[in-house]
Nucleic acid binder design. Structure first.
Lengths: 344, 344
DNA sequence: CTGAAAGCGCTTACAG
DNA sequence: CTGAAAGCGCTTACAG
């Protein structure tokens, strides 16, 4: 650790001009500056030009705290996510950020691992809206956020009164399992996304889709074939180890996320089994690496879910629009990890 | 007889208590409330208790804009990153967020793809400090940020006047290439991280490390063996395709990120070559999936770089500490993708 | 230890 | 179309 010279040099004067400075220079009142700079009507063209010039000359930027305090608008939306380095969440966040940046809204980020961050309401009076990523309606946070008195949006779940964008997890999971069934599989395992403190909604829905598919095919579900795992590669590895050590191991596995599916594939290979000859695997997401693993999966548009939800939320904030809900399409992507079961 | 409170529409924000409400209820002045709630000295124990009780009863939370405006403190740090869904950046961001959350600072996130976001200074007067991820000192943003008049920190680069935490990219790359040389390789390729608009500093430094290693081993560098690629799996695939189509292809490749290295491995396999028998590959990062790919790599502590830098920056903000710089250790992780070159 | 009051830098009815 | 002024909700010297 090396001590360094202070960052501020004498050459960089943080001379911050106020609205009064601009007003003086442009020879108008501060009220007129405010109106002119924000493009409000009722400002003559030449006054506006004069104000603009003065503001540029002084390098003026309005103080966000002052204008928020005066107007009640924050131009900020809070985003609460349980993860940041999982594929789905990163992509969604990316979509949200892009739309917000374009709208010149700030994004304040809260990573909330236990679903209880909101007991302390860290963003009360700080944001114009909040976006929740995949928190189920019964998470403590949801109640807290609803009490904030600002528009709320959620991706991955549809919660009463919130804007939402999601995919149909039930139907998508059913499609995945149907693909396996169509291939001739009957003993189909599942790796369920699990999280310590919170129960998310997608895993629940994908679980339902799995059971529906089995039911429609007249296959008796076997609880031993359902195991849980953290949403990581390692989580997938451990879950697969459990499944493979079963006296009657599954001939196919539906894994609720691609990241876990990669772990599952790894364990399968290390066990000396071949995929798809001995056992089929289907994932969920269409992660950047799914192609590399030649992984059959259900593709979901993560970036677009975030972007679309951000648009909905912005409409609620700016136009007082009613919350809207949209379900985006998923797509079965058949690659090389699924095939008919081995001949008995 | 019974005065009715005006009906609040369902969407109306719930009544938010102000500091005056708390003051009234506790029978003190608002100044005392402010001091009591912030734990300032010179408040008697019982007054403080009374204020606390009142504040809790009213569910009071100070308006951030008002207190920022009055105090000049934002309790917010801005983070500028070129990516969010790349392993390194996600981990770093995670580390930063964790430290900031603990310190009850907000993190406002800016994804800046072209290094020019700061020409419009979106966070002037909005943050107490800013953190830059891997931007080189000559990026337009850096000048803009330096002019903000707040402490700045950077991870991945050491910039004059900024706090910084990084790894030694030159030495780490040299270690990687030395590993290859030690194995007997002489024709060693490199895949360089490339970005459209900005030239980052890590690629430059890793490039230097590569050349140093060759020079010390007396190996003449061959420009044809150096190719560029975007920091994605696909970027790695394309770069590898170039390298493999060379009349004299390399017997080993140093790839500047694990994500690209996974793409390189994919291309190698699809070309019908074997790794490491025909060609060795070494990455950089120790991505979650490096283990699954059995990838030899240089591990760098990404989360910790973010966390440590956040601590430095917080010290600058709160204690007016001088900017500090720290270099964290990397570690060569030898796995299965590197071996001696094939016998000629 | 506590209160009164100025002030932070804007926005926004309200007059004109 | 423009200005004067109140007010947003805090913090902080300054007195006492």
């Amino acid at each position: 650790m090396t001590p360094r010279t202070p960052a501020r040099s004498a050459s960089a004067p943080p001379a911050t001009a106020s609205i009064q400075d601009v007003a003086r220079l442009a020879n108008v009142s501060s009220g007129t500056v405010s109106r002119a700079l924000r493009g409000l009507p009722n400002v003559s063209a030449k006054t506006r030009a004069r104000v603009l010039a003065a503001s540029q000359e002084l390098n003026y930027i309005a103080s966000p705290s002052a204008s928020s305090l005066a107007s009640g608008r924050m131009s900020t939306v809070g985003v609460i996510t349980p993860f940041i380095s999982r594929w789905f969440f990163g992509e969604v966040l990316n979509g949200i950020e892009q739309v917000l940046q374009e709208a010149r809204f700030d994004l304040v980020l809260y990573i909330d691992t236990d679903g209880k961050l909101f007991e302390s309401l860290p963003m009360k009076r700080r944001v114009d809206a909040v976006i929740l990523l995949t928190l189920p309606s019964d998470a403590p946070d949801v109640a807290g956020v609803a009490n904030l008195g600002v528009p709320v949006g959620s991706v991955g779940v549809d919660i009463e009164g919130f804007a939402s964008v999601k995919v149909d997890d039930v139907a998508s999971a059913e499609t995945a399992v149907n693909h396996l069934i169509g291939l001739g599989h009957r003993r189909i395992g599942m790796v369920v996304l699990e999280h310590d403190e919170i129960e998310f909604s997608s895993p629940r829905d994908r679980d339902r889709g799995y059971h529906q598919a089995l039911a429609r095919a007249g296959i008796e579900p076997n609880p031993a074939l359902i195991v849980k795992g953290y949403s990581t590669v390692e989580g997938g590895e451990k879950a697969a180890a459990q499944l493979l050590s079963l006296p009657e191991r599954p001939t196919a596995i539906f894994v609720q996320s691609d990241e876990m599916a990669m772990g599952v594939l790894h364990t399968i290979r290390r066990t000396g089994l071949r995929c798809p000859e001995d056992i089929s695997v289907i994932g969920f997401d269409d992660h950047e690496l799914a192609r590399v693993f030649d992984l059959t999966t259900v593709a979901q548009p993560a970036f677009e879910q975030g972007a679309q939800l951000a648009r909905f939320v912005l409409d609620m904030v700016r136009e007082k629009a009613a919350p809207r809900a949209q379900v985006l399409e998923t797509q079965l992507v058949i690659r090389g990890t699924t095939a008919p079961p081995p001949a008995v």
